Structures are given as C-alpha cells and as structure tokens.
Amino acid sequence: MNIKTDRIGIIGSGSWATAISKMLLENVGQINWFFRKTETIDTFRETGYNPRYLQSVEFNVEQINFFNNVDTLVDNSDIIVLAVPSAFLPEILGGLKTDLSSKYFLSGIKGIVTNDNLLVVEYLKNYFNVPYENVGVIAGPSHAEEVALEKLSYLTVASIEETKATNFAKLIQSEYIYTSISDDIWGTEYTSVMKNIIAIGAGIAHGLRYGDNFQAVLVSNAIHEIKRFVDTVHPITRDIKDSAYLGDLLVTVYSQFSRNRLLGTLIGRGYSVRNAFLDMNMVAEGYYASRSIHEINKQYNVSLPICEAVYRILYENIPSKKEIAQLALKMN
C-alpha cells in the first residue's frame, strides 16, 4: 500500500463521510467520492461544501472526483472507505458488478449489517470474498462535528495485519487527529455497535429525568457488559479501558452530538420510535443494532441487561419507565 498515491474512494455522503474526506485530504492530493444524487454533486461543485452535512467544512473541489455510480467509483479506486449507515450497505453494494476481492477497505461504519446480523468485515468476506487482512476499521472516540471544527480527536484503526493498520492510520492522521492501531477488528466493531445501543438506553434514562448519578452507574455497568460480550464472541487479550472501547462508549453516551442518545431521550420523553425518527430526520444505528445483538446473543447467551432493556423498549413496546426501573434494580 502506497498511502500517497493509492486511489481512494469514499462511499457515503453524510456527516461522518464528510469528516473522513476532510481527514483524508490532509494527506492525499485527490479522492473519489460517491453521491447518489447528481443535484447534490452539482451544488457541491458550485459551493465547495457538502450541501446537506457539515456545511462549515470547505473543500477544494479540484481535489474531488465526484461519482454517482458505485461501480465506476470502485473501478477507479484501490482503497474504498465505507461511511454509510450499515442498514443501507447491501442496497449500495448489492448490485456491484466489479470484483472487490483485491480491493482494500477502510470501514467507518459503526453498525451491523442487519439482514444477516454480520459485522462489516464479515459481510465483505462472505459476500465479496474480501480477505479479513484487506479490511481496516476506524474506531472512536470521535464525532464528525468535532472533526469538522478541527478539535483534537483520537482514532484507533484496527486491522489484523499491523503494517496495514499503520498504513490505514497514516491516511487519516493530522495535527488534530491522533491515531493508534489495533489488531482487534471484531472487538472494535462490536464495541462500535453496542455503544450505540447503550447510548439509546442512556438517552431514555435522561428523558425519564434520571440524573448524573444513575448515568454513571449505567456506563460503568455498560463497559462490563460490552467486555463480557466481546470476550465471548472473540476471545483475545484486550484492555477494555482503551479509548477504542471505553472512550468510544463515553463519547457516544454523553456527547451533545450523539444521535443515538437523542433518539433515546425522545423516547424517554414519551415519543414513539417512529415519531422520534421523524423528529430527528437522521439514522440512529443503535436502533437496528439492538435487534441484531439480541439475535446474535441467542447463540452465546451472554448477560446483557442494558442491551436487552433497550431491545424490549424499542421492539416489544415495553414502557420505558417500567423497563428502566427494572434495569436499575439489576445494576450495582
């Protein structure tokens, strides 16, 4: 991998894709970027910013090759960065005619492919024969909004091959992005999935007017819950207190930018799930992840009281006030 000359394609046009594109252009001269709508591309070319997300981020459009066909973007890219909601990934990649098996992938997706309850690395391997060693995973803690403001952020890039993890990390590091590497692609991906579910739970508690004291206990229990699950599903040596795990959980639970926390807050205030989504006009990955983790855990039977409480509120219509009160009795 030559990180200065490899052709890099971005699939995704939301806030995180925009933030990743900003990070990449600190290190490479040009990127390929996929947008569904030609009118969005036209407006971007005219204004120099993404018209729908992070409009404060100004781009030199001469550094961007715009595409509205995924096959064409993939043909013209050696490294492909995925930054779309996980629920939409099969729709976007499902019709591809291009062979992906020799491509490198960097996943910024913090969710699970819900059709088959697969992590992104598993989905790429199972459906497109992409070797695990050709995939890197971007783990937090960070929010796109703070990257846009160039506030100091720390990211972990996970890949099972150290050299590739290092090369992927060099693509996104800068004066305001510090990076570290990991070989734990399964643990970092599952943490990214589960912390969104936990954030919904924290938001529900906030909407129900539980205070900071309860939230602290919720989070301290949550990191143990995540550890139990990832250690069961992929048992390797890992320090759950590292920023890729605990840090990612904390920023998602507490940040004003967390859409999963916002979804939970609205539900705690009495919104239905449908009305909460309509009010937000954004995708909250934790909603889909909740059902996926519930289904996956049928195989492992790990104790996940917080995730299960959120699942029952979201999918079984159990009143949030009743469910959180029951959850409170199980924590210490």
Rank of each mutant, 00 (worst) to 15 (best):
I324K: 02
E146F: 07
V81Y: 03
F35P: 00
I79D: 02
T156Y: 12
N2W: 03
H234R: 09
A244N: 10
V157K: 01
Q63T: 10
K151L: 15
G268K: 10
I226N: 01
Y210K: 13
I324M: 14
I200G: 03
S142K: 01
S159W: 02
L96C: 09
I198D: 04
Y123E: 06
D75N: 15
E225A: 08
F59D: 05
R238F: 12
S15H: 11
L327P: 01
N332W: 01
N281Y: 01
R7F: 03
W16T: 09
M1G: 10
I92Y: 04
K164N: 10
N301I: 00
T166W: 00
L246D: 00
G48V: 04
S320M: 04
R259G: 10
Q173H: 11
R52A: 07
T166C: 00
G12D: 08
S159G: 10
E295R: 12
S272M: 07
R228D: 12
I223S: 06
V217Y: 07
I204R: 01
V70G: 02
K151R: 15
I296S: 05
I197H: 03
Q55L: 03
N332K: 14
L208Y: 11
F257G: 05
L149E: 15
D248T: 05
V302Q: 01
E46V: 00
S13R: 04
L208C: 10
L100G: 09
T237A: 12
D279H: 14
T166P: 00
I172R: 06
N27C: 10
D75M: 13
L118P: 02
V310E: 05
K37T: 11
A83V: 08
Y315W: 09
N69V: 12
Y123T: 05
Y154C: 09
V28P: 06
K241Q: 12
R269E: 15
V193E: 03
K330M: 14
N213R: 13
R45D: 04
G247Y: 08
E62N: 14
K4L: 13
I177T: 06
Y154F: 15
I293V: 15
S174K: 04
F229R: 05
Y190E: 00
V84P: 01
S107Q: 04
I64D: 09
L119Q: 07
F88K: 03
